[in-house]
Amino acid sequence: MVKAIDNRWWLAAAVAGFAALPWGLGIYHQHVLIVSLFYVMMTASWNLLAGYTGQVSFGHAAFAGIGAYASGILATKVGLNPWLGVGAGTLAAAVFGFLLGVLCLKMGGIYLSLTTLGFSEILHIIINNEYEITRGTMGLQVPGLIAEYSKLAYFYIFLAGAIITLAVVHRLIHANIGLNFRAVQNDERAAAALGVDVVRVRVLAFTVSSALAGMAGALYGHYLLLITPQIPSLDQQFLVLSMTVIGGLGSFAGPVIGAFGLEILSEYIRAYGEYHVLAFGLVALIVARFAPRGLVGVWKQFMDRRRPAA
């Protein structure tokens, strides 16, 4: 018990320290932190699905796109308050996630991967074809979340978003439903034999994960002030996946580490232009192949080995 309280203090101190960080930084670095926090929301919610229930969605970026476009279109066409828009975007992503989940999850994991990839392609086609509403590749200009644009304010908004996301993930994986998530991932037949409603558990995980992606996307759109098909692109999906895999699939800290690590790194190597997707791809390939639990997994193994055998 004492230990748990200790951990909580450490966590509070770390968050406080992080929250003070942007005061000493320039606009550019503040921007990098905000984008990193966006990726924390994306990776943590994707990890909830892939890392804890073993289902791979290739539509996570697409759900962020649903959130962004839903909120953006409501703001520009109906004049909805962007904050309510973020709620609407989250809800829209949840509804789409739920419907897709019900549609394909009774058939098993591979079907989810196929269907979400298809969904993401279709979303692109729709965005490009409905130019009147979405402004296609030109991008949709949307209002910001706050009257006076300030990176610092956005930083705190994104920090809150990331904390909410991590809190939801943490709660779920430590609740009874988290046991069911892991049981389904480990062996779905055994889980079913013990009374786990496998399809329901999967649909639930997929819906929550998609909703969180929708929230992240909606916030991101109102930060960039311009929503383009880049948000729901496969490149974006790839980045989220790579960050999670490199950081550590199925661990709580892994996605956070991956999101910050790769986003900051990619700012440094952006100068090399097109090579940076390739570089991330190769690194992710090597990590997924040789260290499937990512950096966190490597670290744990290292600590296990150092600890005297119990």
Partner: peptide, 20 residues
């Protein structure tokens, strides 16, 4: 799950190679 993840990453690696 890992074969899905690996082949997806592979597809992006190929795409960026093609582009280059």
């Amino acid at each position: 799950m890992y074969s899905l993840i690996l082949t997806f990453i592979l597809s992006i690696v190929f795409q960026s190679l093609f582009l280059l």
